[in-house]
Amino acid sequence: MTLRAFLTTLTLSAVAATGAYAQDDAAKAAIKARQAQMDLYAFNLGALGAMAKGAVAYDADAASKAAGNLAMLTKLDQSRMWPEGSDDMSADNTRALPAMWENMGDVMAKGGDLAKAAAAMEAAAGNGLESLQAAMGPLGGACGACHKAYRAPES
C-alpha cells in the first residue's frame, strides 16, 4: 500500500468512525428525549389516575389541567425521536423493538389513536369523576396497543 493510499484509508476510517459516533450520540439523545416524554405522560396520568382510583378527591380544575397537558404532549412532533439505530438490538437503555421501524405506518396509526384518546380525556376530565373514569380505559388501551406490539419485556 502506498503512503497516499494508507492515509486515504485512515482518513476514510476516521470519518466513518466519527459518523458512527455521531449516530450513536443521536440515538442516545433520542432515547433520552422519548423517555422524558413518557415520564411526562406518566406524571400527568398520575394526577388523573389518583382521582380515578379514589386515592385523592376529584378536582375538576386539576383534572382538566393534567388532561390538557397530556393532549398537548401527544401533539409534539416526534420525527427526530425515533432515528434508525435506536432500537433495543442496536442501542442500550431502550426496549423499543426493531419491528417499530418495519411498521412505521402502524406505529403512526397507533400514535394517532393515542392523540384521539387524549383529546377525549381532555374533553371528559372536567365533567365529573365518572366521566374521567370512563376515559381512563381507552387511554390505557391506546398506550398498551403500542407497548404490546413494539416494546420488549422487562429483562
Partner: peptide
Amino acid sequence: EYFTSGFTPDYDSAGG
C-alpha cells in the same frame, strides 16, 4: 385500575 385501564401505579402501561 390496572385491570381496567392497564395503568400500573407509576403509570406505565401493560405490555406484551
